[in-house]
Computed example of a mutant assay.
Amino acid sequence: MSHYSDLISQLLWHLPVNLTDIAQTITDPHVLDQIQKAWSHFIQTGQVWALLIGLFIGYIIRNLTSYG
């Protein structure tokens, strides 16, 4: 098992330094503000009604097509 861990550590040791560019760069760290803006947009555009109507219709269809 140590042979595999040695191989992996050798591979990781030789990775280029700029590999960290793959990581996401956070430009706006205010996550709660983003959630609040997304929620208000969800409400203002009426998508909440589409969600509720879809859930209701799906519930009705499930009950009509289920046996027992």
Score class of each variant (00 low, 15 high):
residue 30 H to K: 05
residue 31 V to N: 02
residue 66 S to E: 13
residue 58 G to R: 01
residue 51 L to A: 11
residue 63 N to P: 02
residue 6 D to I: 04
residue 55 L to N: 09
residue 51 L to F: 14
residue 14 H to W: 01
residue 21 D to N: 11
residue 62 R to S: 11
residue 34 Q to T: 06
residue 27 T to Q: 02
residue 26 I to P: 01
residue 5 S to M: 15
residue 25 T to M: 00
residue 58 G to Y: 00
residue 1 M to L: 14
residue 27 T to V: 11
residue 44 Q to D: 15
residue 22 I to M: 02
residue 17 V to L: 03
residue 8 I to K: 10
residue 35 I to F: 13
residue 22 I to S: 02
residue 52 L to G: 01
residue 36 Q to S: 07
residue 32 L to N: 10
residue 25 T to R: 09
residue 18 N to S: 07
residue 32 L to I: 14
residue 41 H to W: 13
residue 17 V to I: 09
residue 24 Q to H: 02
residue 40 S to R: 08
residue 39 W to S: 11
residue 65 T to N: 04
residue 36 Q to F: 14
residue 39 W to E: 11
residue 7 L to M: 13
residue 53 I to H: 12
residue 58 G to A: 00
residue 36 Q to D: 15
residue 19 L to K: 01
residue 4 Y to M: 15
residue 39 W to G: 05
residue 2 S to A: 13
residue 21 D to S: 10
residue 57 I to G: 05
residue 9 S to I: 09
residue 13 W to S: 14
residue 29 P to S: 07
residue 1 M to I: 09
residue 4 Y to G: 11
residue 49 W to L: 13
residue 17 V to S: 02
residue 50 A to P: 03
residue 31 V to H: 06
residue 25 T to N: 00
residue 21 D to Y: 02
residue 40 S to M: 13
residue 50 A to M: 12
residue 3 H to A: 15
residue 12 L to M: 13
residue 61 I to E: 10
residue 34 Q to R: 10
residue 62 R to L: 05
residue 12 L to N: 13
residue 43 I to E: 12
residue 42 F to S: 02
residue 8 I to N: 06
residue 16 P to N: 01
residue 51 L to Y: 05
residue 60 I to M: 07
residue 57 I to N: 04
residue 66 S to H: 07
residue 55 L to T: 03
residue 24 Q to L: 01
residue 51 L to E: 11
residue 57 I to E: 09
residue 63 N to F: 03
residue 42 F to Y: 15
residue 8 I to F: 07
residue 5 S to W: 14
residue 39 W to R: 08
residue 57 I to A: 09
residue 68 G to D: 10
residue 23 A to R: 06
residue 27 T to L: 08
residue 45 T to R: 06
residue 68 G to T: 10
residue 58 G to F: 01
residue 45 T to A: 12
residue 35 I to Q: 09
residue 54 G to W: 04
residue 55 L to I: 09
residue 59 Y to H: 10
residue 11 L to P: 02
residue 49 W to N: 15
residue 33 D to R: 06
residue 51 L to V: 15
residue 61 I to K: 09
residue 22 I to D: 02
residue 24 Q to M: 06
residue 27 T to S: 05
residue 29 P to E: 05
residue 13 W to N: 08
residue 55 L to E: 06
residue 2 S to I: 11
residue 27 T to C: 00
residue 62 R to T: 07
residue 35 I to S: 05
residue 52 L to K: 03
residue 58 G to S: 05
residue 61 I to Q: 12
residue 65 T to V: 11
residue 66 S to P: 02
residue 20 T to Q: 01
residue 44 Q to A: 15
residue 20 T to I: 00
residue 31 V to I: 15
residue 59 Y to W: 14
residue 59 Y to F: 08
residue 37 K to N: 14
residue 48 V to W: 15
residue 29 P to A: 03
residue 9 S to W: 08
residue 40 S to N: 14
residue 15 L to I: 03
residue 39 W to N: 14
residue 32 L to Y: 07
residue 23 A to V: 00
residue 23 A to E: 09
residue 33 D to H: 04
residue 2 S to W: 03
residue 38 A to F: 06
residue 12 L to E: 14
residue 8 I to Q: 05
residue 8 I to S: 10
residue 31 V to G: 03
